[in-house]
Simulated assay, not measured.
Amino acid sequence: MVAQKGRDLLLKVDNGTGFATVAGLRSKRLSFNTQLVDVTDAESAGRWRELLGGAGVQRAAISGSGIFKDQASDALVRSLFFAGTIMPWQVVIPDFGKVSGAFQIAALEYSGAHDGEVVFEIALESAGQLTFEAV
Rank of each mutant, 00 (worst) to 15 (best):
E43K: 15
V118R: 06
E43L: 14
R78M: 08
L11S: 00
K12C: 11
S63W: 01
E109M: 09
S63D: 04
A42S: 11
V13R: 00
R59N: 15
F19R: 00
S27G: 15
L76C: 02
V118I: 10
G97T: 01
E109N: 11
P94K: 00
Q35C: 05
E43N: 12
T34E: 15
S31K: 07
T85K: 13
I93H: 04
G6W: 12
A107G: 10
G6Y: 13
D70V: 00
G6K: 11
E43P: 04
K69W: 03
A72L: 06
D8I: 13
F19M: 03
A61W: 02
D38L: 10
R26E: 05
G84K: 02
Q71N: 13
P94N: 03
G18E: 05
K12Y: 06
R29L: 07
E50G: 07
G24K: 03
G64S: 03
E50K: 13
K5V: 11
T34Y: 10
R49S: 10
W89S: 02
R78D: 07
A60F: 01
A113G: 11
D115R: 15
G6N: 14
D41L: 14
L108A: 05
R29D: 15
T34G: 13
G18A: 07
A83H: 11
D14C: 02
A55V: 09
A102P: 15
L76A: 02
A83Y: 10
S79I: 08
D115K: 15
Q58N: 08
G18K: 04
G53P: 11
V91P: 00
A3E: 15
L9W: 11
G6H: 10
G101N: 09
F32T: 02
R49L: 14
G101V: 05
G116E: 12
G18I: 05
G54S: 06
G66T: 05
A83E: 12
F81I: 04
A61H: 09
D70T: 00
T40Q: 09
R29N: 14
A45Q: 12
R49V: 13
L11C: 02
V118C: 05
S44K: 07
V92Y: 03
K28W: 06
T40E: 05
F68A: 00
A23N: 01
D115I: 07
F32C: 03
G54W: 06
K12Q: 15
D38F: 03
V77M: 04
